[in-house]
Design a binder for these strands. Structure first.
Lengths: 72, 72
DNA sequence: GCATATTGTAATATATATGTTACAATGATG
DNA sequence: CATCATTGTAACATATATATTACAATATGC
């Protein structure tokens, strides 16, 4: 599970196309981000958060993996 | 105020050079991000967060501006 | 004043995020 | 089945994030 964009988007009843328009990118970009195949820029992440009414942590946070401090 | 990278970095006693090495970029990239002249990728944002032991919201969140809901 | 560490910044090159266009796959609905 | 909405994805072009190299500016310690 890469991020929560898809879940968040559906949560506010937006299609990829609608979300794309609101954040100023193309539908393909949204699709690829949801699929975890793109590494979006911070600005785009923020725009998406605003559009789905969530925060960066809620949509994009990923716990640090391979930690030697056993926190995951 | 663009982001909290500089404050967070100083908070864990790292120089730009040291932070850059830990997150796998060059010092210049860190410098420009701190200056608000770069729009870093999500992956880099996450790496920085791990390095300074904070979350995306703590380091990179920016309240939505120009809101018609008077929240700022 | 001189050497060193840290940071700011510029020019050019490279990698990659994103756009453009197009087509395929799926699901709903007639 | 045909049609439409939605989504996945591919090829190529463009914009930009980042690297590389280099030099300047500031602060600290000699």
């Amino acid at each position: 599970m890469e991020n929560q964009v898809k879940v968040s988007r559906v949560g506010v009843h937006l299609t990829q196309q609608q979300l794309a328009e609101r954040v100023g990118v193309t539908r393909q970009t949204i699709s690829l981000i949801e699929k975890g195949k793109y590494n979006p820029t911070l600005k785009l992440c923020l725009e998406i958060c605003y559009a789905v009414n969530k925060t960066l942590d809620e949509v994009f946070w990923i716990e640090k993996e391979s930690g030697s401090n056993g926190k995951n």
